[in-house]
Amino acid sequence: MTEELMQQILKISFYGASLALILIGLYGVLTKKNLIKILLSMAIAESGLNLLFVAIGYIMNGTAPIFSTAVLDENNQLLETVTMVDPIPQALVLTAIVIGLGVTAVGLALVIRLYKHHNTINIDEIRNLKW
C-alpha cells in the first residue's frame, strides 16, 4: 500500500468519524426528551470535536512534541529525520476535556435537583418555571 493511499484512508477515517460523532450528538440533543440523554449526546458531540482538532494538527510520520533524549543528538539539537506534530491543538483539547467534565458535572447536578422537585426528567413534563 502506498503512502498516499494510506494518508487518504486515514483522512477519511478520522474526519469521517469525528463528523459522524458530532452529527449523532446533535441529533440526540435535538430529538431526545430525557435530560440525561441530552447531556450524553452533548458529551458524544464534544468527543467528536476533540478528535477533529487533534486530527487536523497531525503530520504524517511525525512524533509527539516531546524533546526527549530519543530525538536529540549529543549537542541537544533535534535530529534531522524527526518532524514533530502541532502542539497547539493538543494543548487546546487538553483544556477543553477538563472544562467539559466541569460542565457535565454542573449539568447533572441541575438534573438531580430538577428530578427532586418535579419527580421527572422528561423536558416535556417540566412546564412550570417555579423553582
Binding site: 486515514l10 478520522f14 474526519y15 487536523i56 497531525y58 503530520i59 512534541p65 502541532d86 502542539p87 497547539i88
Partner: peptide
Amino acid sequence: ADAVFSIPFGVDKLNIAKEYL
C-alpha cells in the same frame, strides 16, 4: 463535511507552532 474535507490531512501546517517548538 465539504469544509472539513478540504483541510489537508497529515501535511505540515505549522506557523505559530514553529516558534513554540
